[in-house]
């Protein structure tokens, strides 16, 4: 009886998915007509991608740097000028470091994305694009290392050299039980979210293939990411479960 109910539920989800997919075709067809209006401008986008990279530095890298410097200043004030009875300033510094790391990570992702797009014959400043990518890749990595060192200075229990390959292991070992739980929960929620996101992205690129003729490469890439994520998840599940 329960099996029948499960089958019925799955069937209902399949039908609903089919209906949603059918309706999405109309949305994508509307988008397709828009896309063909936009396409001629993509040439301009690639030609001027160097300036987009400069904009990225201003929007993401500089705030990350600014927040890092500000956090360091506040930390020095906590250690010297301020006679603190509560944790307001500690919390403020932690928040600044968190935001600095967030901006830095976003910069990192977009920096790689724009670099990938910039390697194109239409890009008029290809050398500038490569230079800005390399310089700010190093700069944002240094920013991240500085932020980690700041966290370690604030909380000397946190171990690990951020430029060593053993950093993740050493850091994890030095965390207390609540911090470990937070990391495990964050990792699990990220995994679950990515499972959902990959299905949605897969659906989107499936439609873009049929309507915009984007080819098979995006499908293969998403399939590969999905496969790697699933294999890694099951391998670690087996390892930590301890069963042979």
């Amino acid at each position: 009886m329960k099996g029948m109910r499960d089958f019925g539920k799955l069937l209902l989800w399949l039908v609903l998915g089919g209906v949603a997919g059918f309706l999405l075709v109309f949305v994508f067809e509307a988008l397709a007509s828009l896309w063909y209006i936009i396409v001629p401008y993509t040439d301009v986008l690639i030609e001027q991608i160097f300036w987009l990279q400069v904009g990225l530095v201003i929007i993401f890298y500089l705030p990350a740097l600014f927040l890092g410097v500000r956090a360091k200043k506040w930390m020095n004030r906590i250690n010297t000028d301020l006679d603190l009875e509560d944790d307001t300033f500690d919390k403020r510094v932690e928040q600044m470091i968190y935001r600095s790391l967030l901006f830095n990570r976003l910069f990192y992702v977009f920096n790689f994305t724009l670099f990938g797009l910039s390697i194109d014959g239409r890009n008029q400043s290809i050398n500038g694009s490569i230079l800005i990518f390399v310089i700010f890749c190093v700069a944002s990595s240094l920013n991240e290392v500085k932020a980690v060192r700041m966290v370690q200075k604030k909380d000397p229990m946190k171990k690990g050299d951020p430029i060593s390959f053993k950093y993740d292991k050493e850091l994890l070992e030095s965390l207390d039980e609540a911090e470990k739980l937070i990391i495990y929960k964050t990792g699990y929620h990220t995994f679950k979210f990515m499972e959902f996101a990959l299905i949605v992205i897969f659906g989107v690129i499936f439609f873009t293939k049929t309507i915009f003729n984007t080819g098979n490469a995006p499908i293969l890439v998403i399939g590969l990411i999905w496969l790697v994520q699933s294999i890694v998840y099951f391998a670690y599940a087996k390892k930590f479960d301890g069963s042979k």
């Binding site: 944790d87 909380d155 207390d176 609540a178 911090e179």
Partner: peptide, 24 residues
């Protein structure tokens, strides 16, 4: 303060905060 308490016990300030709030 939370940071000093954390130091005394050997945990972070955030952990003391989580315990006090009943989140952990």
């Amino acid at each position: 303060n939370q940071a000093e308490m954390g130091k005394r016990i050997g945990v972070s300030r955030q952990t003391i905060s989580l315990i006090e709030r009943g989140d952990y």
